[in-house]
């Protein structure tokens, strides 16, 4: 039981949780503050993961230049997605971003691209440059049921530092005149246009900045693990949306707390059900079905949230972000 609980609690600070939180902060900017329906945050994460890891493995770049490559690729991707769609109705952005994310996934996972992207197997072992910067002395650090190596601690610390940085950045932005324009666009872009603001340019800026958050999330996501093309499907994007809506789309802190709650609960339900099946308490499920149940729970949570608490846990009911 301690193990299950420890596992669930550990998801509060895992680098993966931080990565999802950061990706959700990006969507908060896109959707919660600008009203852009980005259904392809997975592609920005994939750009981060692949941009970084290919730079290291294929081009032999160091850590920082590799991060630079990912950033440039992310900005390019935002323009690629934004140019055809930001002048169109919002549903076009949704379909194009979701399609682009799938296209990207197909391309990186094709066997023909294997020498560069690793194909369906993805990439690993590109994090030496990152861990080389680790100031924490080598060793095992034990707390309660957890046992961290110095690199685990480093990854956790850096991940949350990055998340904090971007959360503060967004908080500053949305309280500035820039944020005012962005929120105006969310409410009614024609009104903002009639006041002399270049709406298209602002939407693009928002797409780029939120996309960059997704890209950094993508790098955090793969630093402690490996790059697996299968991870960047639509499910990833929908998870991030669930996290965003859980915390509240028009908030900054909501994405972070949303990610923590999401992963802890998912871990807890999964482990409890698994254990139940293992020791025979739960007889109507098999181990394979436990996975399906968890996905179903996410789906149910998403539906209920959007219908009954669209502003999320932290959102202001008055600042409802859904326009009709």
């Amino acid at each position: 039981m301690d193990l299950i609980l420890g596992n669930a609690i550990s998801w509060l600070f895992q680098p993966i949780t931080a990565a999802y939180a950061l990706a959700a902060i990006g969507i908060a900017l896109h959707f919660g503050f600008t009203g852009l329906l980005n259904f392809g945050q997975a592609v920005f994460m994939a750009v981060g993961a692949y941009g970084f890891s290919i730079s290291v493995k294929f081009f032999g770049l160091g850590f920082w230049p590799a991060v630079g490559v990912a950033v440039i690729a992310s900005i390019a991707m935002a323009f690629l997605l934004g140019i055809p769609t930001l002048r169109l109705r919002s549903d076009y952005l949704a379909i194009v971003t979701i399609a682009a994310a799938e296209v990207f996934r197909f391309i990186v996972s094709t066997t023909s691209a294997q020498p560069v992207t690793g194909g369906p197997q993805g990439l690993n072992q590109y994090s030496e440059g990152f861990y080389a910067m680790n100031p924490i002395p080598v060793g095992h650090y034990k707390f309660w049921v957890w046992d961290f190596k110095q690199d685990d601690l480093f990854a956790i610390a850096v991940s949350w530092l990055v998340v904090t940085f971007f959360a503060v950045l967004l908080a500053i932005l949305i309280r500035s005149p820039w944020g005012r324009v962005i929120k105006g666009i969310r409410e009614d872009e024609d009104a903002v246009r009639s006041l002399g603001k270049n709406v298209y340019s602002y939407k693009m800026q928002s797409l780029v900045v939120g996309g960059l958050m997704g890209t950094f999330a993508g790098i955090l996501f793969v630093l402690p693990t490996s790059v697996q093309p299968g991870n960047y499907g639509t499910t990833l994007t929908f998870y991030i949306w669930t996290i965003l809506l859980l915390g509240g789309a028009s908030t900054v802190i909501g994405s972070i707390v949303g990610a923590m709650i999401f992963w802890s609960l998912l871990s807890l339900t999964g482990d409890l059900l698994s254990t139940g099946v293992d020791n025979g308490t739960i007889t109507f499920l098999t181990q394979n079905q436990v996975g399906a149940i968890r996905f179903m729970l996410v789906g149910v949570a998403l539906m209920l949230l959007v219908i009954f608490r669209p502003q999320g846990i932290f959102g202001n009911k008055k600042e409802l972000y859904f326009n009709a």
């Binding site: 399906a292 996905f295 179903m296 149910v300 539906m303 959007v306 219908i307 859904f322």
Partner: peptide, 19 residues
């Protein structure tokens, strides 16, 4: 309920039914 909300509800529904 707004159309965007409905669309997200349909994403949830899709997950529930699929799994």
């Amino acid at each position: 309920i707004g159309l965007t909300q409905m669309m997200i509800v349909s994403i949830g529904l899709s997950m529930v039914v699929r799994y």
